[in-house]
Each structure stands twice: as C-alpha cells, then as structure tokens.
C-alpha cells in the first residue's frame, strides 16, 4: 500500500468514525431531509478525493463540516433552491458555534422512552418524516390533512419531546 492510499484510507476511517456527527450537522442546517443520505455520500466522496489536503493531527470534524456545508450549498444551488437555504454567512456562524455533540447516548435513550409516550398517529408521522424523508405536504395529502397541521404537529411533537428529554436526563442526575 502506498503512503497516499494509506493516508486516504486513514481519512476515510476518520470519516466513518465521525459520520454520525457529520450527518447530524448536515441534518441540522438544511430544510427538508430527503437528500441527506446523498449529501453524506457526496461529502464522503469529496473527502476521499481531497484526502491529501487533510493534515494529520488537525481538526478533522471542522474540515469535514466545511466540506459538508459546501456540499449542501452546492446541492441547493443546483436544484435552483438556493433561496430556501440559510445564507452562507449565517451557516458559517451557526457551524462555528455548533455544540460539540448533537446527539449523545443518554439523550438517544431518553428520546426512545419519550417517543413511547406519543400516540401511534404522531409516531407514524415522525416515521414518515424521518425514516422516509417525506415532505410534510406528502404526509398531509396521504393522511387527508392540511399541510399546516402537519407542520404544527411536527413542531409540537419535537417541543414535547425536547421537554421530555430534558426532564429525563435531568432526573437521572438528581
């Protein structure tokens, strides 16, 4: 194995280790969600192609996130939907101030417990939104609702879940 291939393999290894986190940042900056897997893949390909420009010992996540941000911006530009994404400067500032961990294991466990408290109908809606990446308009038309009530329901479900997670994780340390 040449050094170059070894380095690329090393960088790809870092990506795989951090994939969940990088995905989290992609999810957190763009609207919708259907294209996330594609974007993660494209980010991976770009990182593989540019592996030689990554210096060992420097901050990999920051580097990967910058690439991911450009991928997201490029994706929206190509689809002529650039105006539906937050501005460049805004995204940059947001990512600069991003929390180190977006999803930690205790929160994941708490979320699973909290989800059980939701009604089946709301859980189904979340599954369509997150597992299938359906747009709220599609969820609405399949269910025979107005799109607005899907937006409201999604937002309230997340608010209720967020408060539930806070209580659960706080209660654990009491």
């Amino acid at each position: 194995m040449t050094d170059e291939i070894a380095h690329t393999t090393y960088v790809q290894g870092l990506f795989v280790k951090e994939a969940s986190r990088i995905r989290g940042f992609i999810v957190s900056m763009m609207p919708g969600g259907a294209e996330i897997d594609d974007l993660l893949q494209e980010t991976f390909l770009t990182i593989s192609a540019k592996a030689e420009s990554f210096e060992k010992g420097t901050n990999f996540t920051a580097w990967a996130m910058t690439i991911a941000r450009f991928k997201v911006m490029e994706h929206f530009r190509k689809g002529k939907r650039r105006e539906l994404l937050l501005g460049d400067e805004t995204l940059e500032r947001l990512l600069d101030e991003a929390p180190e961990h977006l999803s930690e294991n205790p929160q994941v466990d708490a979320l699973k417990r909290c989800l059980k408290k939701l009604s089946p109908a709301v859980r189904q809606m979340l599954a369509q939104r997150y597992a299938e990446g359906w747009k709220p308009e599609r969820i609405a038309s399949e269910a025979g609702w107005g799109a607005n009530s899907v937006y409201v329901s999604l937002s309230r479900a997340r608010t209720a879940l967020r408060e539930c997670i806070q209580r659960q994780t706080k209660g654990g340390t009491a």
Binding site: S20, R23, G24, V27, S28, G33, I36, L94, E97, A98, P99, L102, S103, Q107, V108, L111, K112, L115, K116, R123, Q124, L126, A127, R129, Y130, A131, R158, L161, R162, I165
Partner: peptide, 23 residues
C-alpha cells in the same frame, strides 16, 4: 442549536435502530 438537537436525535434514531420498538 437548542431546537435542532431534537431534530438531529430523531433523524439518528429513525435511521439507526429498528424503529419497531416505538413504532
């Protein structure tokens, strides 16, 4: 960032685990 936390968590668990346990 406070609000996107739950959003990212939801994305993560619907992707990672079988989903069946709560759905």
């Amino acid at each position: 960032w406070e609000l996107t936390g739950t959003h990212v968590l939801l994305d993560r668990i619907y992707r990672e685990t079988s989903g069946a346990e709560w759905a």
